[in-house]
Simulated scan of single mutants.
Amino acid sequence: MLGWSALAVGLLIWLGWPMDAHAMRIKEVAAVQGVRSNQLTGFGLVVGLDGTGDQTAQMPYTSQGMTNYLQQLGMTLPADAKMQMKNVAAVLVTAQLPAFARPGQMIDVTVSSMGNAKSLRGGTLITTPLKGADGEIYALAQGNLLVGGAGASGGGSKVQINHLSAGRIPAGAQVERSVPTPFALGDSIELGLNSADFQTARRVAQAINDRMGAGVASAVDGRVVRLRAPANPDERVNFLAEIEEIPLEATVPVAKVVINTRTGSIVMNQAVTLGPCAVAHGNLSVSISSTPVVSQPNPLSQGQTVTAEKTDIKITQDTGALIKMDAAPQLADLVRMLNGLGATPQDLLAILQAIKAAGAMNAELEVI
Rank of each mutant, 00 (worst) to 15 (best):
M1S: 13
G3L: 08
A6E: 13
L12K: 09
L12P: 02
L12H: 09
I13M: 12
P18G: 10
P18E: 13
M24L: 15
K27C: 08
S37M: 07
L40G: 00
V46R: 06
L49G: 05
G51S: 07
D54I: 03
D54S: 02
Q55T: 11
Y61K: 07
S63Y: 02
M66A: 07
Y69R: 11
G74V: 04
P78L: 03
D80H: 13
A81E: 08
V88Q: 08
A89G: 04
A95T: 01
L97R: 04
A99T: 01
G104Y: 03
M106D: 02
I107D: 00
D108N: 07
G115E: 09
N116D: 15
T124K: 06
T124N: 06
T127H: 04
T128S: 02
P129H: 01
G132P: 02
A133E: 13
E136L: 08
G143M: 03
N144E: 12
L146I: 09
G149Y: 02
A166Y: 09
I169E: 05
A171I: 01
Q174A: 03
S178K: 04
P182W: 12
P182Y: 12
L191W: 01
A196I: 12
A205K: 04
Q206H: 09
Q206L: 09
R226G: 01
A231W: 06
P233R: 13
D234V: 15
D234K: 11
E249R: 15
A250T: 15
V257Y: 11
S265L: 00
V267C: 05
V272S: 07
C277S: 14
C277Y: 05
N283F: 12
I288T: 15
S289I: 10
S290M: 12
P292C: 06
P297L: 04
L300C: 05
Q302S: 10
T307A: 08
A308L: 07
T311Y: 07
T311L: 11
K314Y: 10
K314D: 09
T316Q: 12
G320S: 00
D326T: 11
P329K: 11
Q346D: 08
L348E: 06
A358Q: 14
E366W: 05
E366C: 00
